[in-house]
Amino acid sequence: MSWLLNALAQGSMIALIALGYTMVYGVLRLINFAHSEVLMMSGYVAFLVDDRLLGGYQHGGTRGVLISTAVAVVAAVLLGVGIEAFAYRPLRARARGATARIAPLVTAIGVSMLLQSVAQLAFTATPQKFDPRLAPPVGYVVLIAAVVMAGLYALVHLTWIGKAMRAVSVNAEAARLMGIRPSRVIAVTFAIGSGLAAIGAVLYSTTQASIEPTMGSSIGTLAFVAAVFGGIGSIPGAMLGGVLLGFLGELVKFTSFSGMKDAIVFLLLVLVLLFRPAGLLGSARARRSSRRAWRGRARTFAPSTGGIRRACAGS
């Protein structure tokens, strides 16, 4: 029972962070590599507020963690929206053709490196750690993650802005024609993803990880993989991918190969992706196009001319 809860907690923390990747991909078709740095920065904000201003474990206690989490969420939202406004939006307006997809991607990597270096200058490379006694019980971690994700699901499916998000992710041009402002929707998406990352960062760093400028790359990689595994662009996919990744990791810990946990988990994921290239819950469109690509290839090699014609028509 405690094992189950622990695995679920690991998974739901990964899922919270994976959501940021998947939501941005959903509306922009962009892998936002700077997401992991938003996570790292919000970890620092939470730690510094709690430790320097609120007195850490001795004086702040649980209340201190809650306040610093709120501050970190606000900071993460500002940072996420700021990155979008200053780094991605100008490119979206200018880049055309082939560069329209590559330029933001390269910019994302650049922003990620920049933020890492800034953190190293501002906070030094020495890792910081929350007092382990501030860690919430495992059950609370699962509960918090579940409530937050349920809230997100409701937001996406029951509110106007959620509907707008889904519309932009299906077809941004058509959404614009229907009176939706894609730029506003994109900003909101960044804000939500970054806020979730901040909650994930606080849960992660209070329960286990230390906070350092490179923390984003280790946790971020895991979350990114979870998003791809679940089907990038799909919100339930990211949740499922994160939870499954957490479970797989904990399962490997029972074997004698526990020292190679990441290698084994990632190998399993490669195998799954070979059979489902669009991820577990990848969008129907992505799934269809990838299936078509497979079939097209198979047909091209086949001697039947009808197959080739159909494959060409399909693409």
């Binding site: 405690s2 094992w3 622990n6 690991q10 495992v138 992660y204 329960t207 286990q208 990880a209 280790s218 904990e250 810990k253 029972f254 526990s258 020292g259 190679m260 946990k261 990441d262």
Partner: peptide, 17 residues
């Protein structure tokens, strides 16, 4: 005997064993 990788952050499963 339990072993974990360098980047491991959660050792609860190991200590339960």
């Amino acid at each position: 005997k339990v072993t974990f990788q360098v980047e491991e952050t959660n050792v609860q499963t190991f200590l339960t064993k």
